[in-house]
């Protein structure tokens, strides 16, 4: 089944609240060999002016990929994950993510385009805090190989 281009421009309802925990920040920092003490030591984070340990710059992918599932796992979207390659990713931080944050992702499908045997799918997840203030924007592009490509 081909990728469904009619999904371009779609915006999903806000996803579930994601509660950022110190332990998840620690796990992700350790897995990516991110050794800055502000990821794991609350005192080091406070010394930099943060109220909790600080997430690494790519932490928001955890929240974004959860939100993206509503789209990429939708059978009607036509995205066969065994044919997907991650093409590019971008994080824009409106402020750092810290432990204790309660964040709500909103998923947008910015574009779905076909380039020969490839379909390029770009999603954007806008992450906001409990007050509705923007925290991070995560833009991700997947390349989906067509049948026989």
């Amino acid at each position: 089944m081909a990728v469904n281009t009619s999904y371009a421009g779609r915006t999903y309802p806000p996803g579930e609240v994601y509660e950022v925990s110190a332990e998840k920040i620690r796990e992700l920092a350790e897995a990516t060999a991110s050794t800055h003490p502000a990821h794991t030591d609350p005192a080091a984070a406070r010394a930099l002016g943060y109220r909790g340990v600080v997430a690494p710059p790519t932490f928001a992918v955890v929240i974004a990929q959860r939100a993206e599932a509503a789209y990429v796992q939708d059978p009607d979207a036509g995205i066969d994950f065994s044919r997907v390659v991650h093409a590019d990713e971008r994080f824009t931080h409106h402020r750092p993510i810290v432990a204790g944050d309660r964040l709500t992702p909103t998923l947008h499908v910015d574009s779905v385009t076909e380039r020969g045997p490839l379909a390029m799918v770009t999603t954007r997840v806008e992450i906001a805090d409990d007050d509705g203030a923007p925290v991070a924007t995560v833009v991700s592009t997947l390349a989906v190989r067509g049948e026989g490509a």
């Binding site: 992700l28 897995a31 990516t32 060999a33 991110s34 050794t35 800055h36 502000a38 990821h39 930099l48 943060y50 600080v54 997430a55 690494p56 710059p57 790519t58 992918v61 390659v85 991650h86 093409a87 590019d88 990713e89 971008r90 994080f91 824009t92 931080h93 402020r95 750092p96």
Partner: peptide, 25 residues
């Protein structure tokens, strides 16, 4: 992508100083 930026947060001495980070794979 996540492992590569660790050198930047260490150098900047503040993980919150990275305001934008992008790459192609």
């Amino acid at each position: 992508m996540g492992a590569a930026v660790g050198v930047v947060t260490e150098w900047a001495r503040d993980p919150g100083a990275v305001v934008d980070y992008q790459t192609r794979f």
